[in-house]
């Protein structure tokens, strides 16, 4: 499929750009290697989460009797059990399941846009990019809600030994467990959210370019493909964040 993407004035000589290493264009190769480096960054974040978790006491009691304490690492499904509009109802991981579905759906609409680009179908590219932009914005909105709930905390908060209670979390105080748990939540989901936001801006740019017929004139939709690679990577990272932060 990469053969359908040609430059406007192709150079044909081996040493003047006519030779495509690994049969992929310069832009796509660079995107792949950038994503590889980004995978190391996210890998390091998630591994540090594992390091912090292994160096804290695990919760060993019955899951039903679980309470928040700075003594042990919290059970994720006891922390992330809120859903907008269902105040006080225990819905473990329901909201994060919804967020996962939204991001997978946005990945599908993105790949449909890339597919439409291969067929030079401007209308379909516009349609699917618009869906991707919509799902991306929804995901970011969900994450904003998740953060604000995490920061403001639950009604009960955490009971300290001296009888006072703390509510919510920031970088130094955390009602759900050791402060490191909140720090890693902010850094990992925050870094992922920044990536989603960046990808969303890129999507807006390529949507405007598509509407203006920039890629139709250029003769190929490779830019949609490259932004698509980035967008799928963001989805891929979420799959790992979901498993290692919310499930395990």
């Amino acid at each position: 499929m990469s053969t359908s993407t040609t430059l406007e004035a192709p150079n044909t000589g081996t040493w003047d750009g006519g030779n495509e290493p690994m049969k992929a264009s310069y832009g796509k190769l660079m995107m792949w290697f950038f994503l590889l480096s980004d995978a190391f960054t996210f890998g390091a974040f998630l591994i540090v989460y594992g390091l912090a978790r292994h160096s804290h006491l695990p919760y060993t009691g019955e899951p039903e009797a679980f309470t928040f304490s700075t003594e042990w690492w919290p059970i994720p499904e006891k922390v992330f059990n809120a859903f907008p509009g269902f105040h006080g109802v225990d819905l473990p991981l329901a909201f994060v399941a919804l967020m996962t579905m939204i991001l997978i759906l946005s990945s599908v609409t993105m790949v449909l846009a890339v597919e439409a680009g291969h067929r030079m179908d401007k209308n379909d590219v516009q349609k699917w990019l618009l869906w991707t932009i919509l799902f991306g914005a929804t995901f970011l909105g969900c994450q904003a809600w998740e953060w604000s709930h995490f920061i403001s905390g639950t009604e009960e908060g955490m009971l300290l030994a001296d009888g006072t209670r703390i509510f919510g979390a920031n970088l130094t105080v955390n009602q759900y467990g050791p402060p490191l748990f909140a720090d890693l939540f902010f850094f990992i989901t925050g870094f992922h959210g920044t990536h989603v936001f960046t990808g969303w801006i890129l999507l807006l740019i390529i949507f405007i370019n598509t509407v203006n017929g920039v890629y139709q004139k250029r003769g190929h939709y490779e830019m949609v493909e490259k932004v698509g690679l980035y967008w799928h990577f963001v989805d891929l990272v979420w799959v790992f964040v979901f498993t290692f932060f919310y499930l395990i």
Binding site: M22, G228, H232, V239, F240
Partner: peptide
Amino acid sequence: KAFYIVAEFMHLKHEAKSL
């Protein structure tokens, strides 16, 4: 899941072996 996202959505399965 990672395999299906990278191989199909990111199309890596259909790229050159060296890539």
